[in-house]
Structure formats: C-alpha cells, structure tokens
Design a protein around this nucleic acid. Structure first.
Length: 638
RNA sequence: GCCGACGUAGCUCAAUGGUAGAGCACAGCUUUCGUAAAGCUGAGGUUGAGGGUUCAAGUCCCUCCGUCGGCUCCA
C-alpha cells in the first residue's frame, strides 16, 4: 500500500502501483471525470502515472490555470497531427503553450494560409471526437537520439532536453511526438479550440536560420470561454490606439513618411497637457530644461561611439559637402551643452532635462502605430553628479517616476535591474559601486525588483520601469542608466573640493520613454476616454434647439473664460443625435441646455459613460469641473 | 530586414474576368425638436503605384510602396 496525501491533508491508502487516475476515482466520480493530470511536489504527471511510494498528490482539472495549460499543450499536438495529415511533408519543430493559447512551429515549404484554418480545425475536431488516449513511452537519451537521428529538429530538441529519460507521446496509433508531457488523458478532454493565425518565425529565434511557419491556436475549457476570449479580442481591437487615433482625429500616418506620426490638433492637446504637467513636476524636482539640435556633424557621433554601435539605425544628410547625422539620442548634444562652460562640484547634481526629438531608422517590419515609430520625442534628462551623489539622485528619479505614473492611473509598476554584461567598459570596481547604488536606492524606497543578470548597457547598469495597463498588458516606459563612458569620451570635467578636475558621473533617464508611445499607451489604457485634464474637448454644450443658442453661447463664453476647452453643438440635429455624437467623441461631459435651463441659469449635465443626467446651477457645475481638472480625475463626479 | 495576408469614396465595407455600389460622414433644403443618431436631395473614385496577360482586369501574373499579424530588434 502507498499513502497518498491530498492537498487538504487527508491521507488515503491505495494499492502500490495505483495511478493518479485511481486517486481521483477514490475521491469521487465527478473528479475522476474532470481530472486532466496530477501534480506531485509541484511536478505535473499524467493521470496514468503509477504511484509506488508515499507521496502527496494534487489533481489538476480544467478549472486550474495549469490544467488549462495542459489542455492547450495537448491541443498543440492535435493541431500538429491535423497539419501533418493535411501536409504529409510538414516537419514538426516545437510546440509550446503561450499566454492564452499555443503555437506550433512547422517546417513546410508550402505556405499555410488563413483559408486553410477551417480545414485544420475540422481535422482537429475529428481527432478530438475520436477521443483517443495520449500514451506515453520512454526511451533512454541514447535510444531517443538514435530514433530521431534523421529528424534535424526533434534531434535538436532532444539534445537540448534535460535528463536521461526522453518521453514520447502518441495519440491513437498513427501520430507520435517527442514531448516532455504530461498531457490530458485523451483527445476528448480538450475543450473548445480555434486556429488563430500563422506567421513566420526563425528557427531558434535566429535571423540567420530558416524561417518556419508558426501556427497559433487557442484552447479554452468550454465553448463559452472561447467565445468570451474572442469577444475580449474584439473589445481590445476597439481600444487599439491606431483605431481610436483615426476615429477621434488625434493623429495619422502617411505613405510619405512611414513611422513618422502626424499629430493633429486634438492629439496636440493631449500632448501639451502632458508636457505642461511633466514640466511642472520636473521643475519641482529641480531640473533645468534645454533643447539641443536635431542635426549635428557626423564627427560628433564618431566621438560618442554611436558610429560604431548604432550607425545602421541612423539617418544622415550632406550639406555643403559636410556630413551630418540626425540624432538618434540626445546625450552627445547634452554633453556639448555641458562643455560650454566650467563646472564646480558646488552646482552638482546638475539635472538637465530635454524633450528631445530623435530619429531612428527602425526595420520596416517593426513599426506599429505610435508604439514603434522612426521619429519620437524622448522625455530625456541627464544628471551630472559625483559618484557619492548617485544613490540620492536615483532615489529622486524613482520618486519622480512614481509620481508621474500615478497621475495617469498606473499603479502596477514593475522594476528590473540589469547588471554588467559580458561586453562592457569600465573596471569591475566601478560596476560594483554603480550597481550597488542602484540597489540601495531601490531598497531605500522599499521597492521590489527583478534582477536581469548581464542585461545592462555596455556603458553601465540600468533600472527599467514597466507598467501594467487596464488590460493587464505590460509596457516598458522609463529607464535609468548609469554611464561611465560618455563623460570620458567627451572629456567632461568639474572642479572638485580639492581643486582638481574630475570626470562627472552621468545618469541618463527617461520616465515616459517616448511621448508618442506613451500617448498610444494611455489612449488604449483609457480606451480613448481621456481624463478631463487632458481631454481635447472637455465640455460640449448641446442646445435643444436654435432657440437656446444664445444661452448656450453664453455658457460657452463663461467656461472659455475659465480656461475650459469647450465647444457648442449648433448643428441642426435633435438633442438625441447631439448626445450620441458627443458620446462617440468620448466627451467627458456634456451640458444640455433648453429654455428651462436658460430661464434659471442652470445646466443639465451628462457625464461620460453614464445614462443619468442632473440639472444643476451653472456656477456649481463650473466649480465641480474645475476641481476635476485640478485633481486629474478620470471622470467628473457630480 | 524576414514569412504570410491585405490595400475599393473621408471612415467601415460590398462587387462568378463583363456598366464600381451601400451605410456613416460631408454639402444644400425641410424640420426647431427635452436626453444614445429625423426626412429629402446632392456631391464624392485613374479601385495604393507601375508594368503585363486578355476582346475585356477592382478581380489573373510580375515589380515597387504602404498597412496588418508574427519573427528578429527596440523607447
């Protein structure tokens, strides 16, 4: 007999060699049916796994996150079988699960097209309906290598696998695939699935290797959950900043300049609102602001090291037989500005911000709305300080960063610290101190962080800030990088207390990262419904008919005098149509006015997203609106 | 840059190789209206660009440009 400890502490006794499935059956018929796999000390095992010694066992069902993952993994095998039966020459490479689904990389010269998905799904449905068991058999490493010697991809997988036991899974009798497992007990246990897309992917993610076809699919425990997922995808599409940017007339792109955004008047209001706020915070944190040229002599970029390391991404131009570079970064210009006069330790730390417009020639396939462009504005700053000031300065940047993020409602902030890479400059000692000061600064603020060993820039360690938006997607925004190279290369100096010239430490930092990208992120985060303070149009006055035009204009005039961005809808439309239009434009607030309101000096307020409306005195409304703007409220609360 | 798909009116989309259409938006007129889209009329196009096949190309073929989904890269 073996003693099986269940998660609730209960111990059951079963015959030696009983399977995990037997455990489920012992607990109850419902669980026996729902069980997909077992978990022993954190390791997943098949239901057919035999228990030979006392052990804790947990059962996994489709209601567990990892149960769903197993189901997806098994579904990947089913899709692989379907594809192999439709294209016998297809060679399987690698088929893992990913967020919300799975993919399978396939080497097949004939392209799989979206129109083929239906056929693949139909074949998959047959396999699932047949409800054939997944069965595991094991070989030793050597046996597996011998078996797979003619299969370049699977052989590679075996060579990369850990352990001496290599397992294979087959479903039914025809299809077999190298796989660590475990799997759901049979194909019938796979829930609702859908083939989603196909795209190219390099083998091993290496651009010099062959391009494979990566077929993406998704699996859910039920049809209902699958539909919910597909619905969510539709919803996410509606808040896509590229869609909203067009719909709300915020920005555009032209064939005449791929990757170069055109910001429209409404987009510029959002932009300038952020800049105003950004300036006020930087002013409070003791920053100066400069602006350096966009085009500078090529020689500067040789000195900075960009020529060697970044030339492929830079734009160049020649005027009067002199070659210039369009700046991809602001730091060299910042160094030139620093060098225009002497500096003393007494003026340190010197915090110099720059909303710098940079150009980077990104590969054509990577552009993506405002998220990835070829021209963007960095909210950059360079802090020149002494080594002893590093820690305090980092703490200051962290505080400033959190303050800015929180103003936009980003509370879920994740931080990563990247340390010395193999290819680096500067002594180990200085790397050690620098990394320690970054760590200490984070600890001072009691901030948890993840360490990415060896991921730092070649010139210094860095901290990256990632935020999560309302859909739970993660975005890297800010970065703080210590630099020991640039001040040296540019011969930057300051006079220290002992009257000797020393090289300052340079801290590069960006908080929002790129204005373009940040605006894209907040558009998606707020689904286009911008908080009142940065809403392009804060209030729209909607007169019931022309009879109330005068009063409406009077209300508009008073709000304008108060500095509110307000418009009046004098179109020849019924009030319902005006309201619908204002909703479509995602106005934070609309004021319906008719003879009744005109008579009493009231306004009927409708707040974005709410069906209810309320008639209040205009002065009262004006106060509420003013407070919502100052407080940076997402919506107006009556 | 690589793989695949796509590109029709301002926007969203139709059109077995056979006369390019609809809805919304826009303009004019009617209506002057009380809370999520009134009615009529009108204007709007070298179907991304350039070649080719064909009696005939939005549709088939080639090249280029751009967009989308990924890969690689990255703010």
């Amino acid at each position: 007999m073996v003693n099986i400890t269940l998660p609730d502490g209960q111990v059951i006794q079963l015959a030696k060699g009983s399977t995990v499935q037997n455990v489920a059956e012992h607990i109850g018929p419902g669980l026996a049916k729902a069980a997909l796999a077992g978990r022993i000390n954190g390791r997943h095992v098949d239901l057919s796994f035999q228990l030979h010694e006392d052990t804790p066992v947990q059962l996994v069902t489709s209601r567990d996150a990892d149960g769903l993952e197993l189901m997806r993994h098994s579904c990947a095998h089913v899709m692989a079988e379907a594809i192999c039966s439709l294209w016998p020459e297809a060679r399987l490479v690698y088929g893992p699960t990913v967020q919300d689904g799975f993919y399978y990389d396939i080497d097949l010269d004939e392209p799989i097209r979206p129109t083929d998905f239906e056929q693949i799904e139909a074949r998959m449905a047959e396999i699932v309906k047949a409800d054939v068991p997944f069965s595991r058999h094991e070989l030793t490493r050597d046996q597996a290598i011998e078996k797979l010697k003619d299969d370049k991809y699977k052989l590679d997988n075996v060579l990369r696998a850990d352990g001496d036991v290599i397992s294979f899974y087959s479903q039914g009798d025809g299809f077999e695939d190298l796989c660590r497992g475990p799997h759901v007990p049979s194909t019938g246990k796979i829930g609702a699935f859908k083939v989603m897309s196909v795209a190219g992917a390099y083998w091993h993610g290496d651009a010099t290797e062959k391009m494979l076809q990566r077929v993406y699919g998704t699996t859910w425990a039920s049809k209902k959950e699958l539909n919910h997922y597909l619905h969510c995808l539709e919803e996410a599409k509606k808040r896509d900043h590229r869609v909203l940017g067009k719909q709300l007339d915020l920005f555009s792109f032209s064939d005449m300049g791929p990757g170069f955004a055109f910001m429209h008047p409404k987009g510029m209001i959002i932009w300038n609102s952020i800049v105003d706020f950004w300036r006020s915070v930087h002013d409070r944190f003791g920053y100066d602001e400069i602006k350096t040229p966009i085009i500078l002599n090529e020689a500067l970029w040789h000195r900075s090291g960009h020529w060697e390391n970044y030339k492929e991404n830079m734009y160049f131009t020649t005027v009067d037989e002199v070659t210039y570079a369009i700046k991809p970064m602001n730091c060299p210009g910042g160094c030139l500005a620093y060098k225009t006069r002497q500096h003393s330790y007494k003026e340190f730390p010197l915090r110099v911000a720059e909303l710098g417009l940079v150009h980077r020639h990104e590969a054509s396939g990577v552009m993506h709305g405002l998220f990835r462009v070829r021209q963007f504005t960095q909210d950059d700053a360079h802090i020149f300080c002494t080594p002893r000031q590093i820690e305090d300065e980092i703490v200051g940047v962290i505080d400033l960063t959190f303050e800015l993020y929180r103003a936009f409602g980003f509370e879920d902030i994740h931080i990563e610290l990247s340390t010395k890479p193999e290819k680096h400059i500067g002594s180990d000692e200085i790397w050690e101190t620098a990394t320690e000061s970054l760590k200490k600064a984070l600890n001072t603020r009691h901030i948890d962080f993840q360490i990415n060993e060896g991921d730092g820039a070649f010139y210094g360690p860095k901290i990256d800030f990632h935020i999560k938006d309302c859909l739970g997607r993660s975005w890297q925004l800010g970065t703080i990088q210590l630099d020991f190279s640039m001040p040296e290369r540019f011969g930057l100096t300051y006079t220290d207390e002992d009257n000797t010239d020393k090289t300052p430490v340079m801290i590069h930092r960006a908080v929002l990262g790129s204005f373009e990208r940040f605006i894209g992120i907040i558009i998606e985060h707020f689904a286009g419904s911008m908080p009142v303070w940065m809403s392009p149009e804060q209030v729209r006055v909607l007169p019931i008919s022309e009879k109330t035009s005068d009063y409406a204009n009077q209300v508009v005039g008073q709000l304008k005098a108060q500095g509110v961005r307000v418009q009046c809808d004098l179109s020849n439309e019924k009030i319902g149509a005006k309201i619908a239009k204002a909703h479509a434009d995602k106005l934070p607030c609309m004021l319906v006015v008719g003879p009744q309101e005109a008579e009493s000096g009231h306004v009927n307020v409708r707040v974005r997203g709410e069906k209810a409306n309320k008639t209040i005195d205009f002065r009262e409304f004006s106060g509420i609106l003013g407070k919502a703007i100052i407080d940076k409220s997402t919506n107006i609360a009556l």
